[in-house]
Design a protein around this nucleic acid. Sequence first.
DNA 1: TATAATAACAGTAATCGTTACTGATTACGA
DNA 2: TCGTAATCAGTAACGATTACTGTTATTATA
Lengths: 134, 134
Amino acid sequence: MATLKYSRQREAIKEFLATRKDHPTADVVYQNIREIYPHISLGTVYRNLTLLSDLGEILRLRLSDGVDHFDADTSLHYHFICKDCGSVIDLEMDSIDHINASAGRNFPGQIDGNVTYFYGTCKDCLLSKPMEIS
Amino acid sequence: MATLKYSRQREAIKEFLATRKDHPTADVVYQNIREIYPHISLGTVYRNLTLLSDLGEILRLRLSDGVDHFDADTSLHYHFICKDCGSVIDLEMDSIDHINASAGRNFPGQIDGNVTYFYGTCKDCLLSKPMEIS
DNA sequence: TATAATAACAGTAATCGTTACTGATTACGA
DNA sequence: TCGTAATCAGTAACGATTACTGTTATTATA
């Protein structure tokens, strides 16, 4: 029953993701893996990204830009999205899971967790922007 | 330049949203408005939902289900998504904007805000589920 | 009030990210 | 080595959303 078989394409996808800290999309993964396996199919990339995230080996990030991003770092951490350049950056910060209790205080259902990301302007975009006259 | 003109379709969409607390999708809005304006186009619904959210009169919620939800309540509040039935419910809780400071502590960019929602099982789904044997 | 300019419309086609299908290939236990 | 089933490449289909086109309705102005 659905024994997982080795696949070099899946390994390549996993290895590629591990080298990246910028949370690439499926298409970016596809474009990069094609340099190693020129005949790989986009469908294979999607299937394996879904499989790996179902297995918990990678994270699927659904941000507000309508495209899924993938992250090889499955430890608890948070993300920042630059609204100027769209880049996704890891944040080093303490857990904010205490907000779950706050959310559950007046709520009759069961709260299991939260999805949180931060947005603003990244360092590079701050520097490249013209000075604001204040 | 681009003076806003009145449209009865847009008014109907706004009024419909104001009567609902369940954050309907564009298609749900479409199906309901059709009872009043049977010839309204889905494109008109999308165009006006986008226009209204650009004007800040409604909120566009991008959750993880791949479909946009819309909310006539533009005041600061948070949402809960039931992972069993998918319903979107308002939470009554204090602001959690203090997490922005926590996120900015070791981050060189500028943090403007956060997107946060909670997930779990709603009251109705808890009740309708078979008892867990513990 | 009549007219002209143009925002908004209905209907439909196109786009885009993603998923499903199909027949060929590959991994791997017996 | 062989059989079976997972995986593949290639491609078609899908669903949400957006863009296009010719028509209609709103509104400023004459």
